[in-house]
Simulated assay, not measured.
Amino acid sequence: MSRSLPLLLNTDAIEAWPAALLRARGNADARLLARARWVLRRKRDGRYLAAIFDHGVHSLIPHLPQEPGAAEALDALSWLNPQRGSGPLEQRLLSPQGLHERLQQLGLDADAYAANTGLALEAEPVLLHFAGRDRFGRPLWLRRGAAQAWRRMRLQAAREGIALDAISGYRSHDYQLGIFERKLARGQRVAEILKVNAAPGFSEHHSGMALDIGTPGDPPAEASFEETAAFAWLQEHAAWHGFRMSYPRGNPHGIVHEPWHWRWCGS
């Protein structure tokens, strides 16, 4: 495993991040991250669980062996080595079975939601590639083809005097579930939340193939993006790079027009 390997390894409960891309949360973390290759990060709340070194594992929580998903994540890391490479993992997707159960706990029927909206359940990929950083300095994760296409498209735009930046890329089911759980805890009902948030599992961001695009000086994920030179450039050139706008006006899913949201469909 290379220290600079720009990959995120995804399992049901835990992500393995390259340590060099994570921000330290204190002096002790900083010293560990400076030497570690990988960090196990709990998807549900972002907590760092363990630092992975060439010589072993340093637990950052009590009772790491009892942490749900820890053994699975450590085992998955064994597939990322110079002999095997990342090839065997590129097309793997996580099973959505656990998601169905958690949606039921929230009072959401996944099959009914899919039938009503025409949206597909998006499985999470096992492997994601570092595609640079977003506007807020966070690592941007996408599937390999989407990451390569985004880099090429952004470079072409820059050469033509157009600045594109990413607002967000891959987001996990857990991230979306967290939004729902926090809003429910504040007293909102599921029907209210669904007016502004896609049901967990049904956002294209889960696939690692979609990203929200902006341009410096324009607020993120706002209708005003449609009036920018960057949007005009995307309309003319994005398809050549394999990107399409997912939610134009009058889309069949009933989703508000999102000129900033583009999905890579291959090129």
Rank of each mutant, 00 (worst) to 15 (best):
163 A>P: 05
17 W>I: 01
66 Q>Y: 05
208 G>N: 11
64 L>H: 10
37 R>F: 11
186 R>S: 15
26 G>D: 09
147 A>R: 08
228 T>Y: 01
115 A>G: 08
184 L>T: 12
105 Q>N: 11
161 G>I: 13
254 G>N: 04
103 L>Q: 07
54 D>W: 09
120 A>L: 15
74 L>F: 02
220 P>N: 03
136 F>S: 13
177 L>R: 05
250 G>P: 04
241 H>F: 15
249 R>Y: 08
231 F>S: 09
203 S>L: 14
61 I>S: 08
26 G>K: 04
221 A>L: 01
46 G>N: 04
242 G>P: 05
50 A>T: 08
68 P>S: 08
222 E>A: 15
37 R>K: 14
198 A>E: 14
227 E>W: 15
241 H>V: 02
218 D>C: 15
134 D>P: 07
18 P>V: 00
206 H>M: 12
203 S>G: 15
126 V>S: 13
58 H>R: 14
266 G>L: 10
219 P>M: 07
153 M>C: 03
254 G>D: 02
93 L>W: 07
266 G>V: 06
144 R>L: 14
13 A>I: 02
91 Q>F: 09
122 E>P: 03
25 R>C: 12
243 F>C: 10
149 A>M: 05
12 D>F: 04
152 R>H: 13
30 A>H: 04
246 S>R: 10
72 E>D: 15
116 N>I: 11
82 P>T: 00
21 L>K: 04
80 L>P: 05
188 Q>L: 14
213 I>A: 09
212 D>F: 04
182 R>V: 09
250 G>T: 06
189 R>C: 08
177 L>Q: 10
258 E>I: 06
248 P>I: 02
234 L>A: 01
